[in-house]
């Protein structure tokens, strides 16, 4: 009889819903970190290309090394190229 009573599903109360919500949030963490990593890689690639650097190489470095690669990239990146040449002196 005791075994049968254990099999009856209990109604989900307030605490259980709270726990499920927390568990859902926990499952979201890797997704959020993945989105951040992807956006970061896109930014590094575009920024490197806009500075005349090898965007693909820096993309791979940041994918492999994460925040360490980002710091290294910020240290070594070149100055941005100016869009138009300065006007000639009149």
């Amino acid at each position: 009889m005791a075994k049968v009573s254990k099999m009856i599903p209990l109604p989900i109360g307030q605490w259980e819903w709270g726990f499920l919500g927390f568990a859902g949030l926990v499952c979201l963490i890797p997704v959020v970190w993945f989105i951040i990593a992807v956006l970061l890689c896109i930014w590094v690639y575009r920024d490197a290309e806009s500075r005349g650097m090898n965007g693909a190489m820096w993309l791979i470095i940041v994918i492999i090394t994460g925040i360490l690669g980002l710091i290294v990239y910020l240290v070594v990146r070149k100055d941005k190229k100016s869009g138009a040449p300065p006007p000639p002196p009149s």
Binding site: L25, I29, V32, W33, I35, I36, L39, I42, W43, R46
Partner: peptide
Amino acid sequence: HIFLLPLFLALSLFAYLRTL
């Protein structure tokens, strides 16, 4: 750092890419 900051950082990068 694990629950709240990722949301902030995701928002920041989205905003920056949007301006770009």
